[in-house]
Amino acid sequence: MVPALVIAFSIDRPSHRPGHVTVEALQQLDGSLPRGYRTGDRSCNDQKPENFQLPIRAMGYEPVHDYAKDQLGIQAGFAGAELVEDNGYCPPRPRASRTPPRI
């Protein structure tokens, strides 16, 4: 088990090249650490595949992301129930508790 500490990093202007910067940081890791799921914030959701998803998959990582901005909120409904970001809500539930906070 790897402790929660910084083991690699890469620096650039904020939000300028998030996919490239993540790949640069991951390339610093040696082969002794296990590969698995790689989570991140929404800045990596809309990166071109060749700048982020393909390189990290080639390194042995499986990307896991939040929904894209256009997929947030109410997705569908049936008989008064609503599907909000993969969670079902019945009609009596207050609207405020069915609307996830925006980041």
Rank of each mutant, 00 (worst) to 15 (best):
R57M: 13
E50M: 01
A68D: 00
K69E: 12
Q53A: 10
D66N: 09
R13Y: 14
R13T: 15
C44N: 03
P3W: 07
G77W: 10
Q28K: 13
P94V: 06
N51S: 07
V84C: 00
H20E: 14
D46Y: 12
L33P: 00
T99W: 02
L72I: 11
L83E: 03
A96V: 13
G73S: 14
L29H: 07
R13M: 14
E24V: 06
D66W: 11
D12W: 03
S15K: 15
V64D: 08
P14G: 13
P34T: 08
K48S: 04
S10K: 05
M1R: 15
Q75S: 03
L29S: 03
P34S: 06
M1I: 12
Q75F: 10
C90F: 05
K69I: 12
G88C: 13
Y37S: 12
S43I: 05
A79P: 13
K69R: 15
P94W: 02
R38H: 15
I74Y: 09
V23K: 02
R93T: 08
V21G: 05
P101A: 11
F78L: 12
P18K: 15
I11T: 15
S97M: 09
V84I: 09
S10D: 15
R57W: 04
A4R: 04
D70T: 04
R17I: 09
P3K: 10
Y67N: 11
C44I: 09
R17H: 14
P14Q: 12
E62C: 05
F52N: 02
C90G: 01
A68E: 08
G31C: 09
Q71P: 01
V6I: 11
C90Y: 01
P94N: 03
G31R: 05
V6S: 07
K48V: 03
P92G: 03
Q27E: 04
A76F: 02
F9L: 14
S15E: 07
V2S: 14
L54G: 01
D70A: 00
A96N: 13
Q53Y: 12
G77S: 05
C90N: 11
H65Q: 13
H65S: 14
L26W: 05
Q75D: 04
F78I: 11
A8L: 08
G36T: 02
Q27H: 03
H16M: 06
V64K: 04
A25L: 06
A79I: 00
L29W: 00
M1Q: 14
I56M: 10
V2W: 13
P92K: 01
Q53K: 05
A81S: 15
A68Y: 14
M59Q: 04
A4L: 12
Y37A: 10
D12S: 11
C90S: 10
L83R: 01
M1S: 15
R17F: 01
L83C: 11
G19E: 08
L5Y: 05
P34F: 05
R95E: 10
R93G: 01
E82P: 02
S15L: 00
C44A: 00
I11V: 15
R95M: 03
R35S: 02
F9Q: 14
E85Y: 08
